[in-house]
Each structure stands twice: as C-alpha cells, then as structure tokens.
C-alpha cells in the first residue's frame, strides 16, 4: 500500500460515522480541506459546520452541541486547537465532562515547510494534563480511522492527533486496535521502543538495523497516551530492562514523560527519550527536519545503544 496521510484515515472515519449516526456533527475552523473533514461536507453537508477562523468559539459551540445530545468532532490544526482553545477545552469541555471529540491535525515536526507556528509539538502535553481527557496518537492512516471510530464509542472528551504528510501504512485492516491497550509490533529482548505516531515506523526500521548489530529490539505502539496502558509499559520495561520512548513531540510532557512518570513509580530501568529537545521547529522538508531534530533512525539506534549500555553498566 502506498504512503498515505493519517488525516485520510480521519476523513474516512468521519464519513462512515456520519452515514451511521444522526448525532454526529463535524466542525472545522476553515481548514476542512487540510483535515479532510471536507469529505463530510461534500457527501453529507447537514453533518458539517464550518465555524470560520474561530477556534475558541468552535470548541465552545461544540460543547453546547454535546450538552444538547450531539457528538461533535472538532477538527483543526493541533497547535490552534490544543493551544489557543485550551481554556475552553479545560473549563467547558472537560469540567463538564462533555462528549466532544477533538482532532488535532498537522501534529509534529514533519508538517515541514509551514514552519514552527504550524508544527504542533506541545499538544499532547497540553491535553494530557486535563482531567478526564483521553489522548490518542495513531501510527498510520488505517489506525487513525480505527481510532476515530473507537472515540465515537468512548464517551467523554477525547483528543486524537495525526500528521500531515503521507507516511507508510504499517498496519492493515485486521491489525487489532483497542483504545487504551498498547500493541506489540515486534518482539525483542534487549530493549524496547515505546513509540507512537509516525515514530512507530521509525522504531521498526531502527529495530531492523539494531538486529544486524546483535541488539534485539522490541517495538510497542503506545497509541493511547492517556489513559496510559501502565501495566503493559511496566511489563515491557521489566522484561527488556531498557526503554527508549519515541514521539514527534517535545520530550517534555508527552509520551516520554508519561512513561517516565509510570516507571519512576514502579521499575527502575534506564529510559532514553526521543523527541524534540525543548525547541521550536523550522521550515524544511519532513526528512530534513526529522533528521535535524533527532527523530531519525540513526538517532533511535544511538538511543537504544545508550539505553542498553546503561543497563549493563549498572
């Protein structure tokens, strides 16, 4: 299957949901073409509402819709959804525990040429701290579709985050997706990559490369950052004794933080965190940026070696 943007999976799921459920309402803030919510507008316009360039108002409107029984899917760029409308999400959506689904598009540095203002690198951290919020970061277009469908069946506030670029499709229709449950991608015994989003694919490539060096790397897809599948994270950390977290996000506050929080309360193992190191991004091709900001396969392999080294030198 050719490389596909994850947002295509989101659009596909919205189409299916709007065909099946009268309570579904898809909202966007003037980026419907980008988020693929436009697909619903084209096929089923009464289920679509463009709120204009008004993210805070859009979230509040969605909250009102949820209060009156609809299930709104709110789509826009993750930077502006999680960032600009954070207070609305906190004090209205989460405090009322409303059934609002938030979709943050253009997550991560691979957004590329648009530059730093449009590359969501803090969205997972912002959403993860909110009481009652579910946070999902799928790895490809197929998983994004499944995750979006799963969120419809999961009452309460949810945030799903996906990227802009066409990326490899590494799951298929039969690959299981269970909200809140990690998925073992490939087994290994020396260390484990706990990854989500596009970085699952990077971790798979790194595992192959490490295998040639004699390091047996395990890859686990931690698509649900909140609630974190704690027991599974602890099990992989215990069994392999060395952890590398991988995400297209700041190392502060996202998956790496969630894993460290969990492990610091349970098992003592070395953890290396792959992610953006407390900086803004910039313009460039996705490949250039992935490389420069330490999200490339070489960086993952180096982190794995460090983690294994720290384990054996203790």
């Amino acid at each position: 299957m050719k490389d596909t943007p994850m947002r295509d999976g989101y659009g596909k799921a919205l189409l299916e949901l709007s065909r099946l459920h009268e309570d579904v309402m898809v909202l966007d803030a003037d980026v419907a073409k980008s988020t693929r919510s436009e697909w619903v507008k084209q096929e089923n316009p009464s289920y679509f509402l463009d709120c204009g360039i008004s993210e805070q108002d859009m979230v509040g409107t969605a909250a009102g819709m949820a209060l009156a029984g609809l299930t709104p899917f709110v789509s826009t760029y993750g930077v502006f959804l999680a960032g600009r409308a954070w207070d609305q999400i906190r004090n209205t959506v989460c405090y009322n525990h409303l059934n609002v689904k938030l979709a943050g598009a253009h997550g991560g540095i691979s957004v590329g040429p648009d530059g730093a203002t449009h590359q969501a690198l803090e969205d997972v951290a912002l959403m993860r701290t909110l009481p009652g919020m579910t946070v999902v970061v799928p790895c490809d277009a197929i998983e994004t579709r499944k995750a979006t469908l799963a969120l419809y069946d999961h009452p309460g506030p949810c945030f799903i985050r996906f990227g802009r670029e066409a990326v490899p499709v590494i799951t298929d229709e039969d690959t299981p997706f269970v909200l809140g449950k990690n998925r073992l991608v490939c087994d290994g015994s020396d260390m484990v990559f706990l990854a989500n989003g596009y970085l699952v694919h990077q971790a798979m490539r790194a595992a192959e490369q490490l295998s040639a060096e004699g390091i047996s790397a395990r890859v686990v897809n931690v698509h649900t950052v909140k609630p974190l599948d704690r027991e599974d994270v602890i099990r992989h950390a215990s069994e392999t004794g060395a952890v590398v977290t991988c995400e297209e996000h700041q190392v502060i506050g996202g998956l790496g933080s969630a894993v460290c929080e969990t492990l610091s309360e349970s098992v003592c193992v070395p953890v290396e965190r792959i992610g953006v190191q407390d900086s803004f991004g910039e313009s460039g091709t996705p490949e250039e940026l992935i490389d420069k900001y330490g999200l490339g396969v070489d960086s993952l392999c180096a982190a794995a070696r460090r983690a294994v080294q720290r384990k054996t030198s203790r």
Binding site: Q56, G60, T61, A63, G64, M65, L67, A68, P72, T92
Partner: peptide
C-alpha cells in the same frame, strides 16, 4: 444548572451550540 462557567467570554458559544442542536 445547564452548564458550568467561570472563565469569561465562553457562554454565548455554548448557548449557540445548544441552540443549533435544538
């Protein structure tokens, strides 16, 4: 009570969403 509130400026958006759904 029909909604929590306290952070100013948000109520009309919420009311609009309810009105739209109704």
């Amino acid at each position: 009570l029909d909604c929590s509130s306290g952070s100013l400026g948000q109520g009309l958006s919420i009311a609009n969403g309810i009105a739209f759904a109704l």
